[in-house]
Design a protein around this nucleic acid. Structure first.
Lengths: 185, 185
DNA sequence: CTTGTCTATGCAACGAGTTGCATAGCAGGA
DNA sequence: TCCTGCTATGCAACTCGTTGCATAGACAAG
């Protein structure tokens, strides 16, 4: 499992509550790891039980109190150990690709709207990543090691979204060619 | 869940046993959906119970008998229904990216070997996809709708692997710049 | 003759991830 | 005033996916 390690990394970058972590998993961490607040709260409890993280109750006014977590020495050790051991390259799961191949036995034209919807989602993600890049990694800035590593991961997210957009255009062209509108000649 | 639908698509393309399906999920279907034989056998039983697929016992000599599954009319309906309803764009999970960001709190140079290993795996996948493309979709061939859809999905796998290789090169350059070898100036 | 690999199916247990719901105070708009 | 939405945490139940193991005949290599 890598969720606990993703949480360790996030807490090392910045301590925070389960709720704050959940929001980070919707944003910056979201382009390489996703998690719901349920998973996060559950895993945080396990990590606290194992001594990987420490909790501090922070009362707030106008808002519910929160528990701020930070990484304890055993957590740092656990992260180092995990960094040293190999992980398998991820396997992919794209239900849209299943649908595209399934369209051969159904209605290819009916998939166009769905594909366009996916395209919009990815275009939005790309715009968000590019805005984040401009904000956090401006040209000709002095970056420390942590920032350089964050930037290269973000570049991966950007490359992924660009590639996906190009592919979805290819898919749309293919679907349109099959469904009625013949290729111009 | 899309596994059952991926199985429906695969069985429509070609009926087969659970074992054969498992092998297809290691090859052609593997670049957009993965599944182990355990999952497949379990889901096949559910699909049979629901009348989505039909079984035929096929005795073989020199080999264990097999159960050949094919799609029944309710299965085709279920697939059409699923094709018509929207699915959410997949969320990503790249533990290597977690490691890269975690390297800021450990040893960036120690990640180089791991990254190179991932690079090799993706280079092999790309080579396999390209070989499959040459074999199944030669230039200037007349393709029917099903083949065109298979091809566009394969092109997606190829684009993904190419993008990943480029990104891993970027990652390696970044790690090397951080770990000892300073940037030339 | 034993060891290993391939075909072929399957059980049992576990771990990871999702979904629905609950609580509870505060802020802002219809 | 009521309804919605945000912060903040959490339970319970469920589904999905993984891992280890078991069976069992055929065949090839050592």
């Amino acid at each position: 499992m890598a969720l606990e390690h993703a949480i360790l990394v996030s807490l090392l970058e910045q301590p925070g509550s389960g709720y704050e972590l959940a929001r980070r998993f919707d944003r910056s961490i979201g382009y390489f790891w996703t998690a719901t607040h349920q998973q996060i709260y559950r895993v945080l409890r396990c990590m606290e039980r194992d001594g990987w993280v420490e909790v501090r109750d922070v009362p707030q006014d106008g808002r519910p109190d929160k528990k701020v977590y930070s990484v304890a020495p055993p957590g740092r050790t656990a992260l180092s150990d995990w960094l040293a051991e190999p992980v398998e390259p991820e396997s992919v799961r794209h239900s849209l690709a299943v649908k595209i191949r399934g369209a051969a036995f159904g209605d290819p034209a009916g998939l166009i709207a769905e594909t366009e919807r996916h395209r919009e989602v990815h275009a939005e993600r790309l715009a968000r990543y590019l805005a984040g890049e401009q904000r956090d990694f401006p040209e000709s800035a002095e970056l420390d090691a942590g920032q350089r590593l964050q930037h290269v991961v973000l570049r991966g997210g950007i490359a992924y979204e660009r590639m996906t957009l190009d592919w979805l255009d290819d898919v749309l062209a293919t679907l349109r060619r099959l469904g009625g509108a013949p290729e111009p000649h």
